[in-house]
């Protein structure tokens, strides 16, 4: 057991614990912060695997932008706090499916790669990644930039308040507070009676 393995074990335990806390946390903001910790942990796993460029991209894009976006999303959509209100009736099914899949995947992985000896951790440097990206992978790269542009415009169009003119004269959106019979407050009044919303 080398130092590499020890560092990987510590990082992997942190990441797995943060991942479990992300899906079991009762507090929405805590869940988003645990997601940030999970993403940071996987960036550290990339560093242990000698993939430094991917690790830095992960830190910049996922931890820096995506986690903050999730925090904004949670704060703009006020939501109930509490496990009963956050988790649905499908928790048993979820545990069954994910646990079964994990056992199956573990057996397959150990069966397939358990015999592999200890490998040396080497990876291509940033220069090789750059050359491959702009020589062989340049068409997917450009398509990806078009996808990002389309997603940017699509997100703005979807999140705009009014389909008419943009600006200050747009009508403030009318929100029906639980007037719809298909909302949760109507269907399960005992959950929202405590003033959680």
């Amino acid at each position: 057991m080398t130092g590499h393995d020890v560092v990987f074990l510590l990082v992997a335990l942190t990441t797995a614990g943060a991942g479990i806390m992300t899906v079991t946390s009762k507090n929405l903001v805590h869940a988003a912060l645990f997601l940030a910790l999970t993403l940071t942990g996987s960036a550290a796993v990339f560093l242990v695997l000698a993939a430094d460029f991917v690790a830095l991209a992960q830190l910049l894009v996922n931890v820096g932008a995506v986690a903050v976006l999730f925090l904004f999303g949670l704060m703009l959509t006020r939501a109930p706090i509490g496990r009963e209100a956050l988790d649905g009736q499908h928790r048993g099914l979820a545990i069954g499916v994910s646990g079964g899949l994990f056992v199956l995947l573990s057996v397959l992985i150990i069966g397939a790669f358990g015999g592999e000896g200890v490998r040396e951790v080497t990876g291509p440097g940033v220069n090789e990644i750059g050359i491959a990206l702009f020589a062989q992978w340049v068409l997917p790269f450009e398509v990806l930039s078009m996808l990002l542009l389309a997603a940017l415009i699509g997100a703005i169009v979807l999140a705009r308040r009014s389909p008419g003119e943009s600006g200050t004269e747009a009508e403030p959106t009318h929100i029906e507070l639980s007037g719809d019979p298909s909302t949760e407050a109507e269907r399960r009044p005992e959950l929202t009676a405590g003033g959680e919303r």
């Binding site: 990987f8 992997a12 992985i109 358990g114 000896g117 200890v118 490998r119």
Partner: peptide, 8 residues
């Protein structure tokens, strides 16, 4: 290091 750890 062995690939089993990261894969798991």
């Amino acid at each position: 290091m062995s690939p089993v750890g990261p894969l798991l």
